[in-house]
Amino acid sequence: MVCDWGMAIEMGRPGVDGLGYVVRVMGEWQCDGEPLQLHPGDVGWFWRFGAERTAEAVRTWSRAGEVLAVGLLDGAELLRLAFAPEALRDEELARRVAEDVSAPERGVLPGGEAYVEAPTGAVVQDLLSEHGWKSGEPWTPLRRDLGAPVPDPGVRVEVIGPERAHEWAAVVRASFEGSTFTGERWHAMAAGAPYAGARCLLVRDEQGEAVAAVSVWSAGEGRPGLIEPMGVHPAHRGHGYGRAVTVAAAHALQGSGSSSVVVCCPSSNAGAVATYRSAGLDPLPERRDLYRDAS
């Protein structure tokens, strides 16, 4: 447990200029063997909304100038958290985070219905329960070790640059109901600090039509890399493209020096879990969000 009783915990907002530092710190927290948590790639994917909105969505908790926890408001009612590994059981830090998250006047989450995603084993989960938060939807984390060779995905794979952004965006938009992703948002995402270690991949069928898309995000050499998002165009499902694009993602992350590839999806999405498993990712123990209902 990290303790320095002479130093108060401070919550802050990094601003646009501080986002790069926060992303680097979060990358250092990503370790195999530690609980899956908010990844720099999650911030990178959020960056599709632009740097200003990303800065508005990020919160940090620090002691003596050292950032020990980061939160991302992934929508108005969901806060996703990451902690320095040595701070997961820091009760003073967890108490401050739980208080800030539970009090609408502190400007983290609104009153009423809200959700918090925290890493498994973090003491903040226990303290949030004391504030009336309840166990919510189960999620399945999955992981593939990249120490062994990754097979060829067996499909045509392209690394997408600015000239093909609109085509990649079209597949992503079609893959997720309600998605508003566009080529312009791809350009905003690609301008963000996390994208320095990222790649967008596109799979084509034998006729050259774009059928599946994925983004992979590195946290640095020797650290877990993230898949976010992965999608297959509805008109081309059932042909193994989900497995193929996931294998391509693992291959790309291995080439960048990542130690493993990780992803997390709702346990209720059995098709996605099955796709990731078919691509060699092993499911880890389920975890659950915490929620507070409208009452």
Rank of each mutant, 00 (worst) to 15 (best):
M1A: 14
C3S: 09
W5F: 13
A8W: 09
E10Y: 07
G12T: 15
D17S: 15
G18Q: 10
V25Y: 04
C31R: 15
D32S: 10
L36K: 03
H39Y: 06
V43M: 15
G44K: 01
R48M: 12
A51F: 04
T54D: 07
V58I: 13
R59A: 01
R59E: 01
W61S: 00
A64L: 01
L68H: 04
A69V: 02
A69D: 00
G71S: 02
L73F: 07
D74C: 05
L81T: 00
L81D: 02
A82M: 03
A82Y: 00
P85Q: 07
A87E: 03
A87C: 09
A87W: 01
R89W: 08
R89H: 09
E91A: 12
R95F: 08
V97W: 00
E99Q: 12
P104E: 05
G107M: 03
V108C: 02
L109H: 09
G112V: 10
E117T: 03
A118Q: 02
G121F: 12
A122N: 06
A122I: 02
V123F: 00
V124L: 05
L128I: 14
P138Q: 07
P138V: 07
D145Q: 14
D145Y: 12
D145P: 08
L146Q: 08
G147C: 11
G147V: 12
A148Y: 13
V150W: 11
V155L: 12
V157L: 08
V157Y: 01
E158Q: 14
E158K: 10
I160F: 06
I160Y: 00
E163W: 11
R164K: 06
A165P: 11
H166W: 09
A170K: 06
V172M: 14
R173Q: 15
A174W: 08
G178L: 13
G178K: 13
F181N: 02
T182L: 12
G183H: 09
R185H: 10
W186D: 00
H187K: 05
A188H: 13
M189L: 15
G197P: 03
A198Y: 06
C200D: 09
L202M: 14
V203F: 03
D205H: 14
E206F: 12
V214E: 07
S215A: 15
V216Y: 01
W217N: 01
E221I: 13
R223K: 10
P224M: 04
M230I: 12
G231D: 01
H233D: 11
H236T: 03
G240I: 00
Y241D: 04
R243W: 01
V247I: 08
Q254R: 15
G255S: 07
G257P: 10
C264W: 01
S267N: 13
S268K: 09
A270W: 10
A270T: 15
A272K: 00
A279W: 01
L281D: 03
P283H: 04
L284Y: 07
R287N: 06
R287C: 06
D289V: 07
D289P: 01
L290W: 07
D293H: 14
